[in-house]
Design a protein around this nucleic acid. Sequence first.
DNA 1: GTCTATAGAGTGATAGAC
DNA 2: GTCTATCACTCTATAGAC
Lengths: 197, 197
Amino acid sequence: MADTKTIIKSVCIDLFFKKGYFATSVSDIARGSGIQKASIYYHYASKEDLLFHILMSTMNDLTITLEQRLAVVAGVEPRMRAAVRVHVAFHLERQKENFIANAELRGLTAEHHQTIVDMRDQYELIFQDLIRQGTGEGVFADVDVKILSYAILTLCTAGATWYKPDGRLAVDEIADIYENFIVSGLKHGRFDSPAAC
Amino acid sequence: MADTKTIIKSVCIDLFFKKGYFATSVSDIARGSGIQKASIYYHYASKEDLLFHILMSTMNDLTITLEQRLAVVAGVEPRMRAAVRVHVAFHLERQKENFIANAELRGLTAEHHQTIVDMRDQYELIFQDLIRQGTGEGVFADVDVKILSYAILTLCTAGATWYKPDGRLAVDEIADIYENFIVSGLKHGRFDSPAAC
DNA sequence: GTCTATAGAGTGATAGAC
DNA sequence: GTCTATCACTCTATAGAC
C-alpha cells in the first residue's frame, strides 16, 4: 500500500484538490512524493494518465458502492433515500477525489473524457430510473426527471466543495438534511401536484 | 462597446469558459482578439487582472439584480421564490461568466480571492436571512440555515454547468421547477416539521 | 526503479520602435 | 494603442547511466 505508485497517486489527489490539475506541475508531484520528476514516468505514462487513474477509480468505487447498497433495499422511497445517503456519504468521505472528478474533467484527453462521462451517465441513470418509478407509483409528484436528477446529484456533490471533516455537522447529519430536503421536493415539488398539501 | 478592452474581456470569458483559466494562454486571448499579445498588457495589467475584472463585474451585477428585485416583493415566501428565480435566471443567462466565477477562484491572488469571497458571503447572507425569517414566521420548517442556503445556491448555480441555451426547456421553465422544488424542501424538509404532511 | 541531464516547446510579461 | 523582438523562466517528457 505504501509502494511508490500509490504514494504518487495519493500526493496527486492532495495537490489536484488544493491547486487544481493545470496549476500542479510534475515537479510538484515529485517533490511531494520525495522522488525526482523523471521517476514519475516509470509509474505513469503522463500527468493526464494520473488524472485519468484517479477519476476512473473514483467513479468505479462510487457506482459499486451505490449498487451494493441498493441491492438490499426495497421500495422506491426507501431506495431513493438510501441512494441519496450513499451519494452524500461517498462525496464527503472521499471529498478530494470527488472534487477533482467534478472540477478537472477538462484535463482529460478526448477519449478518456468520453469514458468518464459515459460512466457518469450510467450512474445518473440509476437516479433517473428511481424518479420515474416513484412518479409512476404516485409516491413522487410528476416532476421533470432529467432536471430533478441533475438537481439531486449536484446538490449532494456540492458537499465536496464546502465540507470540512471536523466541522459543525457529521456526515450522517448532513445526509439526514439532504435526504429529507430532496424527498420533500420530490413529493411536493409541483403546484399542481396531487401529493402537495 | 466594441472597443478593444471590451473585446479582450469578452474573448476571455469565452476561452476561460471553454478551456479554463490556467489552460488559456495570453497568446490564445490575443489570437481570439485579433491583436498581438503584448497589446493585451496595455489594457490589463496581467492575465489575473482579467480574471478579477470578470469575476468582479459578475458578482456586482448578480448582487444588484437580486437587490433590485427584492426591493419590490413583500412576504417571506414570495421573496424567497423571487430570489430563487433571480438567481437561476442570472446564472443561465450569463452562463459563461457564472461558470468561471465558480470554477476559477483559485486563479486569483490572495487579496483578490478574499474580495470575491467576501462579496459571495454577503450575497449568501441575503438567502440565509430569508430562511431564518421564514422559519421564524413558521412558513418554513425548522431547517439548518447554513446547509440549506448552500443547497439552494449550489442547486441553482449548477444550471450554469449543464444548461444549453437552445435546449428542451426555457429559462423560465427551469426557474419554475427549481422554485417549487426548493420551497417544498424548505416547507416540508424535516421529519419532525409541523408543516409536514 | 531511481537518478542526472537535457531536449524542445511554450509561458507571462517587458522594452522600445512607430 | 499596437507592433516586433526578446527576456527569463517553467513546463512535460525523454535519454541513458547506474
